[in-house]
Design a protein around this nucleic acid. Structure first.
Lengths: 226, 226
DNA sequence: GCAAATTAATGATTTATTCAAG
DNA sequence: CTTGAATAAATCATTAATTTGC
């Protein structure tokens, strides 16, 4: 599978190494600026996009936390087992290895040891992994440019939105899939100002989104079953 | 509260009405193209951005689901209570209002009745609410009110701006504010020419990262119900 | 009537869970 | 099995409703 054909990012070893170093160094939830820089840097080693970086940290953080929890749980069970065994066999009570178990849990974080915490709080709080303190406050997104309104869209919406809901939606779905290249709304043809409509792409457009009947066809093969 | 001072979007009644109509009509997870159009339309009635639309559907969907679950739970409890009462009082067996309970649950969806399902599956599956947009929204970088691209950013953009790059996510937080103070990635500093800022390219078409044609991804339902 | 105080809604983020590609 | 990608759930934070005391 050539990387260019690949549907998803395949981190190169260099990229991975750098990312892991960053993680070890404390990076957890890079902001956009950081993501930009990271992406730029990593792209020296192979194709990569901002979202890959974003996802990587998201996933890595979550999975480290998960591993940690499992380890803690296991250790707890071991402790209980030991305790059980201890009581059953009438062995002498010996000190349970609370420190070593901590050490084991944080073996991945050798370069940035966590702040001292009680075991309990570590178990219940994933927070020590979270370095968001620095960006806690005052991170507000505002004042973006306004989008120019495509009059054709306006007409379309005006027309369809006043109708009966269900009908509207059928139309909308139908429309959405075609709208891009489409001319399915003759009412839209009165758009004759040639001002280039500059709509920024906020959301990714997959060329094949094939917005089929959305009630029946989830765009993901399986949808989620709860 | 002047909207311009407001830190968060305050939907106007018109905007809200339209959004709710769409929801009633079946829109759940609009894709990027849909969001763009919705946003464009709604911006006729007040300031609004794509992310607002995205968030609105996200939240609304979740909270409707929540309400639904609560109602179902309540009804279940009622049923059990009734059953209990019934058994205790030796009343005649009467038909439990399974249909009315369904009707109650979907009273909000009067114009778009859900597809026929068994009660059980409704209870266990939020899926009928889920129409499976596979796309995630993104926000834009702060402070580029004219949408001129900072050269350094531009560099990044040019390299990485494939179709879903904007997935750099709603995470886009205090991007620009810290940007100029950070030099941790010297690879980014090579662009210090004062070339006039260029406008971002809209709707970049790339095939490399295009989501694989969903119609070909025919993996059948996994049957993983939980 | 009218603000201060409290509560309810809801916009925005973060975290957990899930799916499926490789 | 690992992990990129995506969605849903949980949570945080701000705004609107509303209550309350005067």
């Amino acid at each position: 599978m050539s990387p260019s054909n690949s549907t998803r990012w395949c981190p190169t070893p260099e990229q991975l190494m750098i990312l892991e170093e960053m993680y070890k160094g404390g990076v957890r939830t890079p902001n956009s600026s950081q993501i930009q820089k990271i992406t730029a840097h990593l792209s020296l080693y192979g194709r990569i996009e901002g979202k890959n970086v974003f996802y990587w940290f998201q996933n890595h953080k979550a999975r480290e936390r998960q591993k940690l929890r499992r380890k803690l749980l296991m250790t707890k069970q071991q402790q209980q087992q030991q305790l059980h065994h201890h009581l059953h066999q009438n062995h002498h009570h010996h000190h349970l290895p609370t420190t070593s178990f901590l050490g084991c849990c944080f073996s991945n974080h050798n370069s940035s040891p966590p702040p001292p915490m009680h075991h309990q709080s570590i178990l219940n709080s994933a927070d020590y992994l979270h370095q968001g303190g620095a960006e806690v406050g005052a991170t507000r997104i505002k004042n973006y440019t306004t989008w120019k309104v495509d009059p054709t869209v306006e007409n379309w919406m005006l027309r369809t939105c006043s109708c009966d809901d269900w009908m509207v939606m059928m139309k909308m779905r139908e429309a959405a899939s075609h709208y891009h290249h489409d001319h399915s709304f003759p009412c839209c043809s009165n758009n004759n100002n040639n001002k280039p409509l500059q709509t920024l792409q906020l959301f990714p457009i997959t060329t094949s989104t094939a917005v089929k009947d959305q009630s029946t066809a989830t765009s993901k093969p399986t949808g989620h079953h709860y």
